[in-house]
Design a protein around this nucleic acid. Structure first.
Length: 260
DNA sequence: TATGGCCTGTGG
DNA sequence: CCACAGGCCATA
C-alpha cells in the first residue's frame, strides 16, 4: 500500500530504531513468509545493522558485514517497534534486536515480501526505472521513457520500470495536479505536459514526504485531492470527481480539469 | 500488453 | 453476498 513517501518514512523510522543494533533472533509468523526466506535469515543473527535505506518501494536493511535484508510492503505492510515481545495484531515477522527492541512486520493481507542477500549475491533482479524524486530525471528523459509505452499514462506511471515509487494514489494525484486525463496515451504526451506531470509527481510526493515526519499513513484521507473522492467536488472547479477502472485499479479524476 | 493470483479485511 | 483495497509477479 505504501508508495514512495510512506516507504521513505518507514525506512527512516526503521533506521532510527535499529541502526547500530545487533539482530538477536528472527521468527516468521505467517506461511507466506516462510517460503524461501527463512533459511537465509538465520545467517543474519548476530550481525549489526549499518543503516536502512529506501530503493524505489523497497527497504534495504544493510548489515555491517555487507548482508542485506530487503523488504517490500506491497499493499498493507508496516513496521511496529516495541520494547515487549508481545505480537501486535497482524504481526507476520518478528525480529529481536539488542537493547530489547522488538521489530514487527505488521501486514493484515500478508502480501509483504522479505529477501535476504549475502554479500556479492545479487537477488533476482527487478527492473526499476529512475526514482521519481531523482533530480537527474527531467521532462525529456521521462518523455523518452514514456514514448514506447502503448498504454494510458496512468498505467505507465504505475509501471515501476518506467519511474520508480509512484503508486495508485499519487498517480491520480499527480495527474490531477498536472491537469492530464488518466487515459491519455503515454507515448503521445507533449513535452510541456510531461514537464507538468513531473512537477505534479514531485509536488504531490514532496507534500506527502513533508507530512511523513513521523511514519504514519492511512488515516487522513483529506490529504488527497481526488483519490477516493468519487462524487465529491473537485477542489479546483467543483465538478464531481469521477472514478474509472484502468488495469483493474480505480482511477479518480476531474473530467473538467483533466483533458486528453 | 492484459490477466489471474497472492492474502485478508472492510464496507456497501 | 459482492466489490474493492496505496503492489507486484507469473503467465498467456
Amino acid at each position: 500500500m505504501p508508495e514512495l513517501p510512506e516507504v521513505e518514512g518507514a525506512a527512516r523510522y526503521l533506521d532510527a530504531h535499529i541502526a547500530g543494533r545487533t539482530l538477536r533472533a528472527v521468527a516468521w509468523l505467517h506461511p507466506s513468509l516462510q517460503r524461501g526466506t527463512a533459511l537465509h535469515a538465520d545467517a543474519l543473527v548476530g550481525q549489526r545493522v549499518e543503516r536502512v535505506r529506501r530503493v524505489a518501494k523497497w527497504q534495504e536493511i544493510l548489515f555491517v558485514d555487507g548482508a542485506v535484508m530487503v523488504v517490500h510492503f506491497r499493499m498493507t505492510g508496516d513496521w511496529a517497534v516495541t520494547t515487549r515481545a508481545t505480537a501486535p495484531t497482524y504481526a507476520r515477522a518478528h525480529f529481536t534486536f539488542s537493547g530489547g527492541r522488538h521489530l514487527w512486520l505488521v501486514d493484515p493481507r500478508a502480501l509483504s515480501r522479505i529477501e535476504v542477500r549475502q554479500p556479492g549475491v545479487l537477488s533476482s533482479n527487478v527492473r526499476v526505472g529512475p526514482d521519481a524524486l531523482d533530480p537527474a530525471l527531467d521532462a525529456d528523459s521521462l518523455r523518452a521513457r514514456l514514448s514506447t509505452r502503448r498504454i494510458p499514462i496512468k498505467q505507465a506511471l504505475l509501471d515501476q520500470s518506467v519511474v520508480a515509487g509512484i503508486g495508485n494514489i499519487y498517480a491520480a494525484e499527480a495527474l490531477w495536479k498536472a491537469r492530464i486525463h488518466p487515459a491519455a496515451p503515454a507515448s503521445q504526451l507533449s513535452r510541456a505536459r510531461v514537464a507538468r506531470l513531473l512537477d505534479g509527481v514531485r509536488w504531490t510526493m514532496g507534500l506527502a514526504l513533508a507530512q511523513m515526519g513521523r511514519h504514519q499513513y492511512g488515516t487522513a484521507t483529506d490529504r488527497f485531492s481526488v483519490y477516493d473522492r468519487e462524487g465529491e467536488p473537485c477542489p479546483t472547479c467543483g465538478t464531481r470527481i469521477a472514478r474509472i477502472t484502468q488495469g483493474q485499479r480505480s482511477t479518480y479524476f476531474c473530467r473538467r480539469c483533466q483533458r486528453s
